[in-house]
Amino acid sequence: MLPQHNAKPHYKPNVYDVEKSIVRKRIIPVIGLHKLQQIKPLAVTRFYNQLQENYSSDYARHIHVVLRNAFVMAEKWEMILDNPIKKVIPPRIKKKEMKVWTVEQCMIFLIEAEGHAHYIAFSLAIHTGMRRGEILGLRWKDINYKTKTLRV
């Protein structure tokens, strides 16, 4: 069984909720069936292999990070003497080829999106390369009308 994670004060609420969901839905149903001290590197390796068959490499790696953090805390709290995660090769992230639109595709999209409620956000993303979180985090005070610039 994994240790109860008292990390909530150290995480942003959204991150905590995502990681809590990973623990509940992915880790506990497989790894959580065993007592903490009985979890061996082979069991973790099999778990990782199963993850890589069913999920993206990014997601499998994220699950590894959550599991590793739990075992680091279990080791720190002296709940285990030997950390099996240290003896396991973590899931590797497979590099994906970046797919980008041509200038023509961008222009067609912006023409079609004209009048859409999120048109300004779409336009900012295409013209500046800003990410969704950066666009959604903009405030009026981030706009400098004199210099015609945005501060991200």
Rank of each mutant, 00 (worst) to 15 (best):
I111Q: 13
K8A: 08
N144M: 00
K87Y: 11
Y145D: 03
G129K: 13
K141R: 12
P29H: 03
V88N: 04
Y145V: 10
Q105G: 07
M98Q: 15
L36R: 11
I108N: 10
S56D: 02
Y59W: 07
I135D: 03
K76S: 07
M130P: 01
T149I: 05
T149C: 03
H64Q: 11
Y16C: 02
K146H: 07
Y59R: 08
Q105P: 09
A43M: 15
V152G: 06
Q52T: 08
L51N: 02
I22G: 00
K96E: 14
N54S: 08
V30S: 09
E114V: 00
S57P: 07
N54E: 12
N83K: 09
R26Q: 14
Y145C: 03
A117D: 10
K40W: 00
L110W: 07
K95I: 04
I135T: 02
A117H: 15
K146T: 09
I85E: 05
T45L: 08
R132E: 06
Y16Q: 02
I108E: 14
E19S: 00
V23C: 09
K94S: 08
I22A: 02
V44H: 01
E75R: 09
K76G: 00
K148R: 12
G137L: 05
A121V: 01
H116F: 09
M130K: 03
Q105L: 08
Y48Q: 05
L42N: 08
V23M: 14
K96Q: 13
E112P: 01
K25R: 13
M98A: 15
V103H: 12
R26N: 12
D82F: 10
I31F: 04
I80R: 07
F109K: 08
R61P: 00
N49H: 14
L33V: 14
K76E: 11
T45M: 14
V15Q: 10
T45W: 02
A113Q: 13
L150T: 05
V100N: 13
R46P: 01
I143P: 02
V103L: 12
Q4N: 15
W77R: 09
A117F: 14
K20E: 04
F109Y: 12
Q38L: 07
L42W: 06
S123K: 15
L81W: 02
I63K: 00
V30T: 12
R92Q: 15
K86V: 05
I143H: 02
D82Q: 12
G133P: 03
L51E: 04
L2H: 14
Q38E: 15
W140S: 01
I126E: 11
E104A: 11
R61S: 06
W140R: 10
K40H: 04
L81T: 12
Y11M: 06
E112L: 09
I111A: 09
G137W: 08
V152K: 10
M79K: 15
V65E: 11
A43K: 15
E134N: 06
I108G: 01
G137I: 08
N144Y: 05
L36S: 06
N83L: 07
E112M: 05
W140I: 07
L110D: 03
I22R: 07
T45K: 13
L33P: 00
V72K: 10
W101R: 06
